[in-house]
Nucleic acid binder design. Structure first.
Lengths: 210, 210
DNA sequence: GTCTATACAGTGATAGAC
DNA sequence: GTCTATCACTGTATAGAC
């Protein structure tokens, strides 16, 4: 980050969080040492430990830092009063792709998986503070459509399985095969996204034929 | 593994691979040191390095070791001549769930993601030696159904996005939230699997309504 | 709040005797 | 093939001066 302006207190914390988020994304959790983080921030390790009690706490701060933006975006969509339930669901799914593929939180998902195995605390907080609220917001939109008669009645866990699965895998794939030079050929975001959204909506509106 | 019988040469290698696979699954890649592996195998580090040139090579051996069983299972299904394309696809998808959720290879997917970021070589070999053959086999089944007239014509990448997404995410979720005591409530394999398979087949057989 | 200096456990990996 | 012993290094984390 490099200290170029007068930034003190909380600003410094945010700076550290953003810098270390980049490093975590680039080199993984274990691949990112406190020394490297300190160096990238232009301070020493000791100073870094003054701001964060340890590596685990710093990582949690990085993840948490990204929650809010993603959740408020979804919240905003869920609260719109103009559009139909279908349009809102489409917008919500697009937002999920945007979040998981492009934002730091989303791109960190493979990392969060890695760290969650080591620290169950991280797993629990990630689930209750991010996944559950996110699914609750999405469910509000779906449920509204169901009561509307727009959507078929569906099982909650089942539909989330089908919605989040492809999104998460795409994010995971793009991270793990980031070294491929034909990455976008193998994993074209927009194309896969649009097909997925159409499939989901096709399913939710389909007349039962079984 | 502990040496209880006369096992020499290649047997010893396999023993090490199986032991270290367990450790990798339990503690992650960075969380598993060569010392711990050696100790668990009842040998010293130096002996371990006699069998494997390094940690990375050992890990690749673990992953590769699991390929074959999974691929031959799928190969067997694709080559059946009796059942309809639909039944074969159902069997193949069930097998994929079985592989990814229960077998070491599948359960290692979060790990493979972690290691692939660090070693592009691993990413490349995993893709060409496992993912591509697997998708080719699955495509053979689908394509047969399409020529049959059983299935609609679908885009290859698109359908793989919808098929593998939920499976991979389920595997990832179950690993990262393994510490939850209500794991099976949140992520019930059989139920999610059956719903997913029905959804895929419903989609592939659906009359176009768009 | 930041620094210098350091403690100290653990890492992957190797040399050379048996 | 396995051992003992050791390498050079990095990891997280802390003490205490400024």
């Amino acid at each position: 980050m490099q200290v170029t302006e007068e930034n003190s207190g909380a600003d410094r914390r945010v700076g550290i969080i953003e810098t270390s988020t980049e490093l975590f994304l680039k080199n993984g959790y274990s691949g990112t040492s406190m020394s490297k983080i300190a160096a990238a921030c232009g301070i020493t390790k000791a100073s870094l430990y003054h701001h964060f009690a340890g590596k685990e706490e710093l990582f949690v701060a990085c993840v948490t830092h990204g929650y809010s933006a993603a959740l408020v975006a979804l919240e905003e969509i869920a609260s719109r009063s103009g559009p139909t339930a279908e349009d809102k669901l489409r917008a919500a799914l697009s937002a999920l792709y945007e979040t998981i593929i492009s934002s730091p939180v989303g791109r960190m998902s493979p990392l969060i998986a890695e760290v969650s195995r080591m620290f169950p605390t991280v797993a629990r907080s990630f689930h209750t503070e991010y996944i559950e609220p996110q699914q609750a917001l999405l469910w509000r939109i779906i449920d509204q459509g169901v009561e509307n008669g727009t959507f078929l009645k569906v099982d909650e866990r089942q539909i989330f399985h089908l919605i989040f699965g492809p999104i998460v895998m795409l994010s995971l794939s793009r991270e793990m095969f980031a070294s491929f030079d034909d990455l976008d050929t193998h994993f074209p975001v927009l194309q896969l996204r649009d097909g997925h959204i159409d499939a989901i909506l096709g399913m939710m509106k389909a007349k039962s034929d079984a």
